[in-house]
């Protein structure tokens, strides 16, 4: 990798200051995407600001109808957390299915959400549950956060400190992993919260994670596997690449939605 300067931030303010003082700074939140990207010379940040040592960015807090996860909480810790398992089991299961065990013991929720990889799992949960992205300076609704492939509403130097999830009535995630990379070829998160149904799809969209309006309406009138199967998924804007055609991915969206609805119960 190209030269970079490593900083270990002791606090959020410390991290923000280090980023603003860098010519091209990047947050090191787990490094499971960033470091391989740097090794391939596809990224060359002048400075790396490690946020994993910041105490306030770790762990899970239960609020009134909410679960808040610190941005530097690792996938394995979300997957194994008793409160997440009790209140949003679909989210714990999603975290337990990211990458492989070694990746899950380093990668963090904030890193995944900030990167907004079009085939990552967490963006589907954040958008599907209608979560709130909390940063060092504001709160951003999931619907306003994801702005396209690897693109988010975050400003330069803005750091995600936590993600706040509303506790749903029922929710689940199903993915068809790419057999080589384990990233989602298609992943669908379905959630019913206070009578409102949301469906978020990852892995399939040319612009990254998206909500499936047709599927949401179908499930809102009848939350059943048959409704998920019957909803129409357009091939417009669906990824078409060496891994799968748009037609195959569009078909998988319905199949994954059926499985997610079945798991959500």
């Amino acid at each position: 990798m190209y030269e970079t300067k490593y900083h270990k931030a002791a606090s959020v303010q410390d991290a923000v200051a280090a980023l603003s003082g860098a010519s091209e700074g990047a947050v090191l939140a787990g490094g499971q995407t960033l470091l391989p990207t740097m090794k391939q010379h596809l990224a060359s940040p002048s400075d790396l600001v490690d946020v994993r040592g910041i105490a306030g960015m770790q762990g899970v807090t239960v609020g009134d109808g909410t679960i808040t996860i610190g941005a530097a909480t690792r996938h394995a810790d979300v997957a194994g957390n008793a409160d997440v398992k009790a209140h949003i089991p679909g989210l714990a299961a999603l975290a337990g299915g990211i990458g492989d065990p070694a990746v899950r013991s380093m990668g963090t929720i904030g890193g995944s959400v900030a990167n907004n990889d079009p085939a990552a799992d967490y963006p589907a949960a954040v958008l599907g549950l209608g979560a709130t992205v909390v940063t060092d300076r504001r709160e951003i609704a999931a619907d306003d956060f994801f702005e396209g492939m690897f693109s988010t509403a975050l400003d330069d130097g803005e750091i995600i400190t936590a993600i706040r999830f509303p506790v749903p009535t029922r929710a689940a995630y199903a993915k068809f992993p790419n057999p080589a990379s384990r990233y989602a070829m298609v992943g669908v998160f379905v959630a019913e919260t206070g009578g409102n149904v949301r469906v978020a799809v990852t892995g399939a969209g040319e612009d990254g994670v998206f909500r499936h309006d047709g599927m949401e309406s179908a499930l809102a009138s009848d939350f059943s596997v048959a409704s998920a199967a019957g909803a129409t998924t357009s091939q417009e804007g669906v990824l078409n690449d060496m891994h799968a055609s748009a037609a195959y991915r569009a078909h998988l969206v319905n199949v994954m939605a059926e499985r997610a609805v079945s798991k959500a119960g």
Binding site: Q32, D50, A102
Partner: peptide, 29 residues
């Protein structure tokens, strides 16, 4: 592989298995 895929480099850091090719030594003080 040196690309985080193969796991030949797995070691334990603070009791957890991690890919040592995808971890900076400087971050492990």
């Amino acid at each position: 592989c040196d690309t985080s895929q193969c796991g030949a480099c797995v070691v334990h850091v603070d009791g957890r298995a991690v890919k040592s090719c995808t971890t900076l030594a400087a971050s492990l003080d």
